[in-house]
């Protein structure tokens, strides 16, 4: 296992697996950001805080 050159230190995941885990993080952040932006717009419509 440990002599696999494809493994990323220190998680033991292969590069592809690590990239996949990372892609969940990135996607999650994007969705979270979009939702937060939309929520802010909606709040601004009902109770504007900038002028």
């Amino acid at each position: 296992m440990s002599d696999d050159p494809d493994k990323v230190w220190p998680t033991g995941l292969t590069l592809k697996e690590a990239e996949e885990v990372h892609s969940y993080l990135i996607d999650g952040t994007r969705v979270f950001g979009a939702i937060a932006l939309l929520a802010h717009v909606l709040v601004a419509v009902s109770t504007p805080w900038l002028g």
């Binding site: 969705v31 937060a36 929520a39 909606l42 009902s46």
Partner: peptide, 11 residues
């Protein structure tokens, strides 16, 4: 995400 924006959308 749906629940996060829902109360503001309803208001």
């Amino acid at each position: 995400g749906g629940f996060a924006i829902m109360p503001f959308a309803l208001l």
